[in-house]
Computed example of a mutant assay.
Amino acid sequence: MSVATFGAVVPPALLSPPLCAVLELARLGRWLQPPAELEGRSVALTLTDLGLRHGLCCRDGRFRPHGVADAELSLSASLADVLLLLAGQVDADTLFFQRRLAIAGDTELGLVVKNWLDAQERPAWLTRLAARWSPM
């Protein structure tokens, strides 16, 4: 069974809590503070090469698991591209226009997420990790 096949059979409800735990660690480490505009909003993230779908929302300034099907914003990209985006080595506009990032749903929320990620200071370890996964 390939990883992408495995991802297709694993329900997002099992995948979202670990992603939210990682985001919460980043928040507690003061690296990834959600902006007020994310409060009560939901996002679905699909890692296209792995076939994995994650849903999350922001409540009370914290990242929480959320359903994928009813997310207000959907983002789809490969794991490598998501790591590059998070590390600040490539911006969302570049990935979008190269058709490596698909965005669907609430475009205003998409801009909030894009601007939020662009404004974050990145820890050195994240930049090193993204460089290892970089297809460039």
Rank of each mutant, 00 (worst) to 15 (best):
E37Q: 12
A124T: 06
Q120G: 07
E24N: 14
R64G: 04
C58N: 05
L129D: 12
R99I: 06
P18K: 05
K114G: 05
A8W: 01
L38S: 06
L111H: 08
P35L: 14
D91I: 01
P123G: 12
W116H: 05
S74D: 10
P11V: 11
F6L: 15
T127L: 11
W31I: 12
P135E: 15
T5L: 14
A8Q: 12
L109M: 07
A4C: 08
P11T: 14
R62H: 09
R100A: 10
P12L: 02
H66M: 05
S76H: 09
R122P: 02
N115I: 03
S76P: 08
L73P: 03
A124L: 10
P17W: 01
E72Y: 01
F97Y: 07
L38P: 00
A102S: 14
R99W: 04
L47D: 12
L79V: 03
A80C: 08
L47Y: 10
L19T: 07
R53C: 11
M136W: 11
V113W: 00
S42E: 10
V9H: 06
L73V: 04
A69I: 01
W133V: 02
R27K: 06
K114D: 14
G55Y: 01
L111P: 00
V10L: 08
P135H: 15
L23E: 11
A102H: 09
A92Y: 07
G110F: 01
E72F: 02
L109Q: 09
L47H: 03
R41S: 09
L101W: 04
V113E: 10
F96K: 08
L32H: 06
S74R: 08
A102T: 09
E24M: 07
P34L: 14
S76L: 08
Q33W: 13
A44M: 03
Q89D: 14
K114A: 11
V113A: 10
W31K: 09
A71F: 02
A8I: 03
S74Q: 13
D118K: 06
T94R: 13
E108L: 07
P12Y: 00
L14E: 13
L25K: 05
T107K: 04
P12V: 02
L23V: 05
G88F: 06
V68L: 05
M136S: 13
C57W: 01
F6A: 15
E121R: 05
E24P: 02
